[in-house]
Design a protein around this nucleic acid. Structure first.
Lengths: 120, 120
DNA sequence: ATAATGCGTAACTATACGGTTACACGAAAT
DNA sequence: ATTTCGTGTAACCGTATAGTTACGCATTAT
């Protein structure tokens, strides 16, 4: 099977992940596919609300839908999360080096800390 | 220097990252500290708008502010991004194994594909 | 002392968001 | 044929969000 290179919207992914319910839905699908109703039943909000979250996740390509009779199975598509991961990549180096820019900045400041700052 | 273990809000981090301008601000600070005004000047929106984004980033602890005279230097604090990273961790295994649950699902479906599905 | 600079906040506005109830519709059951 | 089930969408509502302009207040310059 020939694998075709596809890119997803980083914007859509970050936006989708901003909502805790949507992240929870993804966490649920991480363990396996579920029909829409079953997903809805695990949350304290109404079914239509979940349906809309699913639509948004669908449009961000984070989940895919597969119809089977009258139910619709949702399953995870982790691919767009690569966009989030690649963005994070630039920041991982900071904590991996155990040196935040904060620390660097503070140290730099300390170097010429002779101008007598306010103690406030 | 004794390092104290601190945890940040995953919720706040994800929420802060949902806005493209805020991500761009972080990307800018990744290269070094900048005063508020200088940050604002690099964006097409007004200075107060940036000021509010900075406040939100500050409250999410993604940036820190340091006053120097009449300017305020902002610098990156990448720590809270660890929360995002740790959430992503669960998903990385999917694409690292080059096996999405989609693929698994499709294969599982294929196994008992005898119930004559609609070709639609 | 007065003016200019740098920056945050208040007030306001339009739009986006997330939730709810009512409804539509195909698939399965009776 | 009719009812029930599973699920999506429409309409509506209150709150959050992101932008703008006006303003306030230190700090630095004149």
């Amino acid at each position: 099977m020939r694998s075709r290179k596809v890119t997803y919207s980083r914007e859509a992914a970050f936006h989708a992940l901003a909502d805790p319910t949507r992240r929870a839905v993804l966490d649920m699908l991480r363990r396996g596919s579920h029909p829409a109703g079953q997903i809805a039943r695990t949350f304290p909000i109404s079914r239509p609300a979940i349906s809309r979250h699913l639509r948004l996740l669908r449009r961000a390509h984070l989940v895919q839908e597969r119809r089977e009779g009258r139910r619709r199975w949702y399953y995870l598509n982790p691919e767009p999360l690569k966009e989030v991961d690649s963005w994070l990549e630039h920041y991982r180096v900071f904590w991996q080096a155990n040196l935040t820019s904060l620390k660097a900045f503070v140290e730099a400041e300390h170097a010429h800390e002779t101008k007598g700052g306010k103690t406030h």
